[in-house]
């Protein structure tokens, strides 16, 4: 009885025009995927062993930390990218030493050293 009700619910849904349109589009999409061979690829991707390998690749301690800090990282990358539009003056060793008086530069250097430490660690 309950199964019959569920079936009726599905038939009712088919009466809605937006549901029918969505279904037609979904069928078109599937046909396109089939023609391009991507559907076979997608099916292969849902295989248990393949899922396992993908997960091993993407779910690591490093990626967990990376994803967690993505907003901060993208902020910094965005700020760096914005500076690329400005012209850069050549900087000598005296200029480098001089610019270290800027607290922001000094903090950046400290970050760079931290990065180096992470790069060189195990």
């Amino acid at each position: 009885m309950a199964e019959r009700d569920e079936l009726m619910e599905v038939i009712d849904k088919l009466g809605q025009p937006e549901v029918r349109e969505a279904l037609v589009k979904a069928v078109d999409l599937l046909a396109n995927l089939e023609r391009s061979g991507l559907l076979d690829l997608l099916i292969a991707l849902t295989d248990e062993d393949v899922v396992k390998r993908i997960v091993q690749l993407v779910m690591t301690t490093g990626t967990m930390k990376l994803a967690d800090n993505l907003p901060e990282l993208l902020d910094k990358l965005g700020a760096i990218a914005a500076t690329l539009a400005e012209p850069a003056e050549p900087l000598g060793i005296t200029g480098l030493l001089e610019s270290l008086k800027d607290p922001a530069v000094a903090r950046g250097l400290s970050r760079l050293v931290t990065v180096l430490r992470a790069l060189g660690g195990d």
Binding site: E48, V51, K52, V55, M59, T61, M64, K65, D68
Partner: peptide, 24 residues
Amino acid sequence: PEKWSPIFRAYFEATDPSRVGGGW
């Protein structure tokens, strides 16, 4: 559960306190 085990296992290993002991 057998479908999710590999995914959960990878998550729990990646976030094991012995690996992210310093914090996450």
